[in-house]
């Protein structure tokens, strides 16, 4: 599996990154090396093996339907790069 220029660009977009040409070439190379390393997994026969998804035995972890633990709006907005008294502000979507 080799990652080519167009695939790298697509991944970049999905990840919302905008790499410089040097960074992109570097990372493209790195990814291909890593995938080379990862291809070792193909040596293992995993037919019929259940994927391991959950690392704890816990099931049915629920909380009661109660209103609790809210924060004040001023706290909610205090780390915002741009906001007014009520809302987070972002540059217009279009």
């Amino acid at each position: 599996m080799k990652i080519d220029k167009s695939l790298i660009s697509r991944i970049e977009h999905l990840a919302r990154l905008q790499l410089s040409d040097t960074e992109r070439t570097q990372i493209q190379g790195d990814l291909n090396n890593i995938l080379e390393m990862v291809s070792k997994l193909d040596e293992l026969n995993t037919d019929g093996i259940e994927p391991l998804v959950y690392m704890s035995d816990t099931v049915n972890s629920f909380r009661p339907d109660e209103v609790t633990n809210q924060v004040e709006r001023s706290d909610a907005l205090k780390n915002a790069p741009d906001s007014n008294e009520q809302f987070f502000k972002v540059p217009r979507v279009m």
Binding site: I3, L7, A15, R16, L17, Q18, L19, I27, D30, L31
Partner: peptide, 19 residues
């Protein structure tokens, strides 16, 4: 923001993970 905000190593792992 993300490109400026993350180091190369982090960006590398995000890219691999996304792939």
């Amino acid at each position: 923001s993300r490109t400026e905000g993350f180091s190369t190593e982090v960006k590398r792992r995000i890219m691999l993970g996304t792939f």
